[in-house]
Lab assay of single mutants.
Amino acid sequence: PEEVRRLVEELYRKGVSPEQVKKILKKQGIDEREIEKVLRRIG
Rank of each mutant, 00 (worst) to 15 (best):
E2V: 09
R41C: 10
Q20L: 12
S17D: 12
K37L: 11
I30N: 02
E9F: 03
E19G: 09
V8S: 01
I24E: 07
G43T: 12
K22D: 02
E10S: 07
E3K: 08
V8E: 00
L11R: 00
Q20M: 14
L25N: 00
I30P: 00
E10K: 07
K26Q: 14
G29A: 03
G15A: 04
V38Y: 04
V21C: 04
I42S: 05
V38W: 06
K14P: 03
Y12Q: 10
I42Q: 05
Q20S: 11
K22M: 11
Q20I: 09
R13T: 11
L39F: 02
L25M: 05
I30H: 10
R13M: 12
E9K: 06
E2H: 09
E34H: 05
E9P: 00
P1F: 14
S17L: 10
R6L: 09
Y12L: 15
R41Y: 08
K22P: 02
K37M: 08
E34L: 13
I24V: 09
Q28N: 08
R33A: 14
G43I: 15
R41G: 15
K27A: 14
V21T: 08
E34D: 11
V21K: 00
R40H: 15
E2D: 14
R6Y: 07
Q20R: 09
L39W: 00
R41V: 15
R6F: 08
E36P: 00
P18Y: 10
D31S: 11
E9I: 08
P18H: 08
K37R: 10
I30V: 10
R5A: 13
V21H: 00
I35H: 00
V16M: 13
V4F: 04
S17H: 11
I42C: 05
V4N: 02
L11Q: 02
L39G: 03
K22I: 15
D31M: 05
R13Y: 14
I35K: 00
E19Y: 03
V21N: 00
R13L: 12
E10A: 10
L25S: 00
R6Q: 11
I35W: 02
G43C: 08
S17I: 07
E36V: 02
R33E: 15
L39S: 04
V38S: 08
R13E: 13
L7M: 11
E36A: 02
I30G: 01
E3H: 09
L25Q: 00
K26I: 15
I42Y: 05
K14M: 12
I30C: 04
E9N: 05
I24W: 04
L7W: 06
V21D: 00
E36I: 03
V16S: 08
P1I: 13
R40D: 15
D31Q: 06
K14G: 09
G43P: 06
K27D: 15
E34P: 00
V8N: 00
Q28M: 13
R5N: 08
P1M: 14
E2K: 10
K23L: 08
L39C: 06
E10N: 07
G15M: 04
K14I: 08
